[in-house]
Design a protein around this nucleic acid. Structure first.
Lengths: 200, 200
DNA sequence: ACGGTAACGGAACACCCCGTCCGGTTGTCT
DNA sequence: AGACAACCGGACGGGGTGTTCCGTTACCGT
């Protein structure tokens, strides 16, 4: 069944606005606000997405697929360790740039909605980790939970602007990667960022 | 001016209940709930603490002083690197065990309320860091912001129980400490923790 | 013991959130 | 062009939060 042209138009606009709002302001942005920015009434929003979770799920399928793609790309790299490195860096950057996605990613929503995609990605990741241990300097006692840990931790990073958060996240990723190495060599770090916490 | 005995009693009970609630459930626990558990009306709570921030500030002075004490203890250690290590580990554990404190610590509230204590602690930390660089394996490009980063990141760690969160936080601290070393040697890690994110 | 007053607490205020209902409007198909 | 169905948005209900009002209670000094 085809949507009426204006309805389809509204749906697209709502999704675009929602993605932007969730990314920059987080998932707690009110639905009315999204409706307002999409120049639409609240009821219209709810007709297209019966609940807030539905909107979140729909808004973040793109990012979920990006995650998959990042892992796939890492798996395809010639050097598994470099592939792993890249995956960590890029996942963290993605999460740093999209506050809402980071939160949804860590919630129980993905389990239900993106189950298939999620399992596939996880399998790829396990494969990559295995190779990076065998053929690279990934420490033997690394477990996949450590990546979850790093991503959750990454979510805790707050800064005054998205740019500052991304910069802080880059430095954090470099630190984490070093901590994942079995025979670490200290590598130069991305520049530090002034954080609210450290004001002297 | 002395408080009336019942008033003083209520105040103490409110603070005790608030500290427990904030630590185990986070700062978002409603004031009505705290009042209820302290067997007190909401108005009474507000008479003692004119705003929620006031209650938070009062409830967490203890933890703030614990932070100071931890840093002072680290500074007093014979080996500055071991002192630094200890500070990182214990600060992270403290933050992991008290959800509310971790959040308040990262907010702008401490700046206004605990300014003096905060500055003193920061100075001690800078001293400790300087020594750990000079006499220990702390990497030269480490900056105090990296500790803030680690603490913020630590706050992002979620788990199903306080015990699980503490365990995850311990492993995370070990990883971070390794990443702070100039000539890292891979050290054994505390055991991993099953996290919601990594459920296959 | 007793009165004055400090302190109490339930109800209420103001605000914000998610999700729903209904009368008017607009696109689409004949 | 007309008519019907689909769609729209303002108003509404239910629930939640921080904060305040005011009649009532209970401590404390005399």
């Amino acid at each position: 069944m085809r949507l009426r042209s204006d309805a389809r138009d509204n749906r697209e606009r709502i999704l675009a606005v929602a993605r932007l709002a969730f990314a920059t302001e987080g998932v707690e942005v009110p639905l009315r606000e999204i409706a307002r920015r999409a120049e639409v009434g609240p009821a219209t929003l709810y007709r297209h997405f019966p609940t807030k979770d539905a909107l979140l799920a729909e808004a973040f399928t793109e990012q979920m697929e990006t995650c998959s793609a990042i892992v796939a790309e890492g798996l395809a790299a010639a050097d598994p360790w470099q592939g792993f490195r890249l995956v960590v860096e890029r996942l963290m950057e993605l999460h740093a740039l999209d506050r809402g996605f980071a939160r949804v990613f860590a919630s129980r929503l993905p389990e239900a909605v993106f189950a298939a995609d999620r399992d596939r990605t996880l399998r790829m990741l396990l494969d990559l980790v295995g190779r990076a241990k065998k053929a690279g300097p990934l420490r033997r006692d690394f477990v996949i939970e450590d990546l979850s840990l790093a991503l959750m931790a990454n979510e805790g990073i707050r800064a005054e602007s998205p740019a500052a958060r991304a910069a802080a996240s880059r430095r954090f990723a470099a630190l984490m990667i070093q901590s994942f190495m079995a025979d670490p060599v200290a590598v130069p770090l991305p520049p530090p960022v002034r954080l609210p916490l450290s004001r002297a």
